[in-house]
Design a protein around this nucleic acid. Sequence first.
DNA 1: CGTGTATTTAGATGTTTGGCTAATTATCTA
DNA 2: TAGATAATTAGCCAAACATCTAAATACACG
Lengths: 105, 105
Amino acid sequence: MDNALTKTMQALADPTRRAILDMLNNGDLSAGEIAARFPISAPSISHHLNVLKGAELVSSRREGQNIIYSLNATVVQEVMQQLMQLFRVGERTSGGQAMKDESDA
Amino acid sequence: MDNALTKTMQALADPTRRAILDMLNNGDLSAGEIAARFPISAPSISHHLNVLKGAELVSSRREGQNIIYSLNATVVQEVMQQLMQLFRVGERTSGGQAMKDESDA
DNA sequence: CGTGTATTTAGATGTTTGGCTAATTATCTA
DNA sequence: TAGATAATTAGCCAAACATCTAAATACACG
């Protein structure tokens, strides 16, 4: 794998995963509750959840038989900030030159 | 393909493409100038540029023998806003529930 | 302990992706 | 118009990805 930003962006690149994050933004859910809302199999959802966890976009805890997933809101915020920084949205055309490479943050 | 956000996120998921965008953020460049800064072949860079163009993150114009690429700053900004909206960064835990699905913007 | 429910892990498969080399297209200039 | 230079398109391949079914693991509870 590359750096953390890449991992995060790749996780965010899949519409199913973004939809999962959106659901979790309305409150924690078990793997089963999440899977029930998609037309794809539970193992596939489990895989997506694992990708999201690998990107630290969500975290999970066991609660009895269920595994509850929650959105890692602070990480989401950090990613946004990294992206905005990467493009320094707003300050262009005036010929600055900072930030050569996308070193990790 | 899915919707525009997915296309954009997929474009943004590749580190080479993000690096290209970062370079263009410091000013327009020809395909050759871009390719010269990477260890991969010119055709590969051309492919990446095409992906970025497909996501409307960059635009190009011919200037003599060269093709000049520029960052589409407004599109970058729009994507950021879409993402931030998607997660309503900041307003959580207080039990809102708006924005069911990630309809296009 | 044994059965049922929830979830993940394993393993297979088709598709997409990122890279390459070779060939083509477009433009400039002598 | 012939070469030279810039860039893209075509075609190929290997690695990564999303999905599936089947099997394994983890709990709960009678």
